[in-house]
Simulated assay, not measured.
Amino acid sequence: MVFNKYINFLLIIIGSVIAIYAQAEEEQNTIILVVGIVILMFGLFRISSTIPSKKEKEDHDTF
């Protein structure tokens, strides 16, 4: 479980670095920028899927 947490953060960091690198060049490479953003969003999606929703938490508290 902890291993997945590190993978998620690693995906976010790698995606961010790739996206920033693609923006830093004089001629922007759109393909590299899109790949970096996709990796970044995939890492964010994986992290957000592990966080329980507020409504779900309230439903468990009432019982």
Rank of each mutant, 00 (worst) to 15 (best):
V34N: 06
Y6W: 08
K55D: 07
F42T: 13
L44H: 08
N4Y: 06
G15L: 11
M1G: 06
F63Y: 12
M1D: 06
K5H: 05
L33Q: 08
N8H: 13
A19G: 02
R46V: 09
I47P: 01
F45T: 13
F45L: 15
S48V: 11
S53Q: 08
V38I: 14
A19K: 14
T50P: 00
E56H: 07
T50D: 14
I18M: 14
N4F: 09
I51S: 02
L10Y: 04
I47S: 04
V2I: 13
Q28C: 02
F3W: 10
E56P: 00
I47K: 02
Y6R: 03
I32N: 06
I12N: 03
G43K: 05
T30E: 07
T50F: 12
M41R: 01
A24E: 06
G43R: 06
V35C: 06
S53T: 11
T50C: 07
D59N: 09
L33G: 08
F9A: 03
S49C: 12
Q28S: 03
I47H: 01
L11R: 03
G15Q: 08
V2S: 07
L40R: 00
Y21N: 09
M41H: 01
V17D: 02
K55L: 04
E25F: 10
V35Q: 03
K54D: 09
E27N: 09
E25Y: 07
D61R: 11
I12Q: 04
A19E: 10
I51F: 07
I32V: 13
I20P: 00
I32T: 09
L44P: 00
A22C: 06
I37Y: 06
N4T: 07
P52D: 10
V2L: 13
Q28E: 13
F9K: 01
A24D: 05
M41P: 00
I20C: 04
K5V: 04
K57A: 15
K54W: 06
G36A: 11
G36M: 13
I39W: 05
I12W: 03
G43D: 06
Q28P: 01
G43A: 06
E27H: 03
D61C: 04
V17W: 13
G15I: 11
I47T: 10
K57T: 14
K54E: 12
L10Q: 03
F45C: 11
T50Q: 15
D59A: 14
I18N: 06
D59P: 00
M1Q: 07
G15N: 08
V35D: 04
I47L: 15
I39C: 05
M1A: 11
V34D: 06
H60G: 01
M1I: 08
L10V: 04
R46Q: 15
Y6S: 03
E26K: 10
E56L: 12
I14N: 01
L44N: 10
R46L: 15
